[in-house]
Design a binder for these strands. Sequence first.
DNA 1: TGTATTTGATAGATAAAATCTATCAGTTTT
DNA 2: AAAACTGATAGATTTTATCTATCAAATACA
Lengths: 321, 321
Amino acid sequence: MKRRSPTIRQVQYFVSVVETLNFRSAAATLDVSQPTLSHQIAALEESFGLQLFERSRAGTIMTAAARELLPGARRLLEELQGLCDQAESLALGPAATYRLGVTPTLGPYLLPHVLPAVHKRYAALKLYVREDAPRNLESALVSGDHDLILTPLPVDQPDLTVVPLFNEPVRLVMSSDHRLAEKSRIVRKDLAGERVLTIEEHHHFHQQTQELCARLGAHLLRDYEGTSLDTLRQMVVMGMGVAFLPALYIRSEIHRPQELRIARVHGEDIQRTHALVWRKTSPARSLFREIANEIRSVAAATLSPEIKLVQTSRRKMIGSA
Amino acid sequence: MKRRSPTIRQVQYFVSVVETLNFRSAAATLDVSQPTLSHQIAALEESFGLQLFERSRAGTIMTAAARELLPGARRLLEELQGLCDQAESLALGPAATYRLGVTPTLGPYLLPHVLPAVHKRYAALKLYVREDAPRNLESALVSGDHDLILTPLPVDQPDLTVVPLFNEPVRLVMSSDHRLAEKSRIVRKDLAGERVLTIEEHHHFHQQTQELCARLGAHLLRDYEGTSLDTLRQMVVMGMGVAFLPALYIRSEIHRPQELRIARVHGEDIQRTHALVWRKTSPARSLFREIANEIRSVAAATLSPEIKLVQTSRRKMIGSA
DNA sequence: TGTATTTGATAGATAAAATCTATCAGTTTT
DNA sequence: AAAACTGATAGATTTTATCTATCAAATACA
């Protein structure tokens, strides 16, 4: 006895016959021929091992088994309809939940400015934001754990579309009683031998600070590293050293300028570049490109003068520092 | 763009690929070839108008749309599984609800004795009992509103299987101050001209009483007819006349013999025959025959001496009075 | 750095299934 | 008694699902 699973079609036919109790008119409603309907109902009965209808030339009546099965059959069809409806609305526009990974040293200070605009423009879209270190972000993006990441350059993974968004300056921050605090103009040589605090090693920003120090001849303090930019700031306030902090962080979190002095190093181009990155094969790539543009325009409108947009490029870019 | 509804099979394939994220191993699990699986997934994507997977030689990952659709797909498959399970258990044994129609002049007095045994033997079976007048019962059985009826003979509908169960004597009932109450032996001529109360016309028992009166030369009182056997009894108690009442009713409901005199008419065979009836085409016919036997044996065991079994007959019988 | 293995897609043939038309044999209606 | 209507059946045809064989790209391993 071969027990093949019933077909959706067969279940639809079943419900139709129940509704009319007449094979011919049910067939007409379904737009199939009456023999087809009879055949499929017979096949369904075969696969259930049950008789569903008592047929007579005088009319068709449901069996007790059919009465028992009917509600489940209807639920099945409703589930299917729901699935199709959902698929249709998904096909119509972005209504899914996309997983966005962000660097902890940027996300909290940029996204609050950007997400409202994105949500306004794509009402049905949801972004599930998770923070992670940049190198984890990249591999998680490749493996499919994220759909989209917001990360500092460089990104050197093939198969990824990297759209640079903007340059974020990095400022020098010192306590107000620091020896350079009163200096109106700080240049490279002022920093020679200066003790520079940094964030934990696994952050991308750590490496950038390290390179910066090497370039400026400053001394990277590795005894005590901050677990976050906030910690770093506290350490600076307590006079443990100076630190480089991203401009968007400073804009968001430093509200008492009297306790800290924020300076730029003249003659030096100190900044990091952030990019939005996704898999080249992602079916939502065009949506992601639009989101990139949205972020760029919101950033340009609300975050200047801190940030400067990166030239838009039509080419797919492999990120460079 | 032709948007055919997805197939159950396609949804199963979809869930399988989600579970392994590998087309080949999913195909092996499903016991189909990998090209078949690829093809069906592609067909599903086509019918949804959505991409469900990002394929690369390095691995397969779900799209956001697939993540959204997955729960619904799983629900759909669960509904199907539930339907199949239910069908299987229905095919295994009688687990459905059958609709049993009964005469009001028998049902309440017989079924309490019979149903417990039936339920014990067919634990999963449910009987939905409804009372109705015999001729309604018959047509409702034919039209499918009932699956089974318990009715007095005769039944003269073709296409029905009629299994006579037992003969139920009909007794003469009079008030204790009636002129015949003290008579130890009542015969036919005692009833000549006697005023006989009856139940409402649409009951089968009315007609039987009528025929009985004609045969015995009694006078059928039609001014005031009882709406139920209970009413009839009350009328007898109040001395409005005598009545014929079925033995099973008397057994069940008359507990104060001092206010009523119950007698038989000697030399007369006054009884009605009850039968269990179903459509010849009913798929549960073998079950119904078993139920008939069950009723017969329970009746024989617990309801004698009131009732006498009718000879079992292997032939399908068209009922006769 | 090659080599073998693994990935999903593709082409074409084949098998299976659903569907159609035409017809039949009973029922009910007129 | 005739006409209309019922679902079942037979056989042809179209559609669909599936298979085998193969490919091209990527990875894993030596």
